[in-house]
Amino acid sequence: MLKKSVFTFFILAVTVVAALVGSSIYTLYSKKRLTVDPKVKEISGIEFDKYKRLWAINDSGDKPKLYRLNQDGSIAKEILVTNAKNIDWEDMTQNTFGHFFLGDFGNNKNDRKWLTIYKIENPIDIKGDTTEAEIIKFTYPEMDGTPIEPDKRNFDLEAFVAFGRHLYLFTKNRTEPFDGITNVYKVGDHAANFDAELIDSFQTCTTLEKLCWITSAALSPDRTKLVLLDSTSIWLFENFKEDKFFSGDVSRIDLGIVTQKEAVTFYDDNTIVFTDEEFKGIGGNAYVIKLDEVEKKVIRKASN
């Protein structure tokens, strides 16, 4: 009788787990819109140009290029930034004028002292297949040249947005033990050398870094919504005051199973597009959600 009870419990547990996994897979893949060309399999940043065409960049190892994608995910055009290097391109954003910013600021080992952002014109204004960038450099004042202690390793970076005349950088937390805090730094949006100014922070989770470290960010075209991306979620911030992005309402949108989600942007004020990198045959897709259709878990409501 005992063995039969144990077996029944085991079958029930397997059934429940299978149902949860199946539901999680559906949650993600029901949002899939296209598979990205394998040439951009390490997609790390996306943005729409003024004609609402999707552009993408690759992570480290590729040439300093932007790729325009067709609606089926194939590559329509490539643009080379002739005075740039792709040491570790990690995100792409644009300001209200349409300038694109390319973030070469990946810092996995927390040992890069100076980091780079390339500023170019909107791709629709680039007539050929090359362009030159305005170069923005920045450093973290907290990095004094000595090795960073494990519990202070919060100087990796994969996410930023343009707001007003500044760029806002959201760190990818690599602390040991993991404390789940993304720090927000502020630099100017023009060619100069900047000391990044720490202005705020937000805690996602403390369970496991690969579930909730921040890998991309985006602002809605009307500049009223901020989203941060991690491997399982989109964090939505609304009703914030000026550049205090975490001062308003906070919600979490479940994206289903863990994949290497690395890029997010807004198509319009209600529509979000995000992508994941291809890894061992999984991912390499673009997905779409509409904010007025998805379930949002309220994490915090702003006080009046």
Rank of each mutant, 00 (worst) to 15 (best):
T171V: 11
A18S: 15
K32W: 07
M92E: 02
G61P: 09
L219G: 01
P123S: 11
A19W: 11
K290H: 14
I79P: 05
A263F: 04
C212T: 09
I46G: 07
N285M: 02
Q203D: 06
L66H: 06
K39L: 13
A13F: 15
L54N: 12
K296E: 10
I272S: 03
N110W: 11
K31E: 12
Y287I: 10
A133I: 00
E132A: 08
T131M: 09
R33M: 13
R223Y: 14
T275I: 02
F100M: 07
W55C: 07
V40P: 00
K296I: 11
F155C: 08
W235F: 15
A191K: 12
P123A: 07
S233Q: 14
G180Y: 10
Y67Q: 02
N86K: 07
I25S: 06
E176S: 15
L12P: 01
P177S: 08
D88K: 06
K4A: 14
V16T: 14
V288W: 11
R112Y: 06
G283K: 10
D129Q: 11
K261T: 02
I124T: 15
I181F: 06
G103Q: 05
L226I: 05
E277G: 09
T131Q: 07
L115M: 13
A192M: 10
I257E: 05
V40M: 01
K50S: 14
L115D: 04
F160R: 00
E134C: 07
D254Q: 14
V273I: 15
K152H: 12
I46W: 06
S24L: 05
I257W: 01
F279D: 08
Y118L: 02
D72H: 07
D195G: 07
W114A: 01
S74Q: 07
F7V: 15
T27Y: 01
E42L: 09
I181D: 01
N108A: 04
R165K: 14
T224R: 15
T15N: 12
